[in-house]
């Protein structure tokens, strides 16, 4: 994947996250049931987006690292 796509996707993920944890995107998910791993649905919903953020940023880092090595800069 090229750098530009990776950055766009990372940005898009976090914008989607913002949309889905605030009004109005969060409305369908702001409910207590069903419980997920014992947690209320709305809480598990946010926790899932946070966990996703770790994965997305780690993947981005893999791509960024490859390009930093290729052009030899650290900026």
């Amino acid at each position: 994947m090229n750098l530009r796509t990776a950055r766009l996707l990372t940005g898009a993920y976090h914008l989607l996250m913002l949309f889905f944890v605030t009004w109005p995107g969060t409305l369908p998910f702001a409910k207590a049931e069903p419980l997920i791993l014992g947690l209320p649905f709305s809480m598990a919903w946010i926790a899932a987006w946070i966990s996703g953020s770790v994965i997305v940023l780690a993947l981005l880092d893999q791509v960024e690292k490859r390009f930093r090595v290729e052009d030899g800069s650290n900026d």
């Binding site: 976090h14 944890v21 605030t22 946070i50």
Partner: peptide, 8 residues
């Protein structure tokens, strides 16, 4: 809300 903002 405290949970949601940190990652963002």
């Amino acid at each position: 809300y405290i949970l949601a903002y940190g990652a963002l």
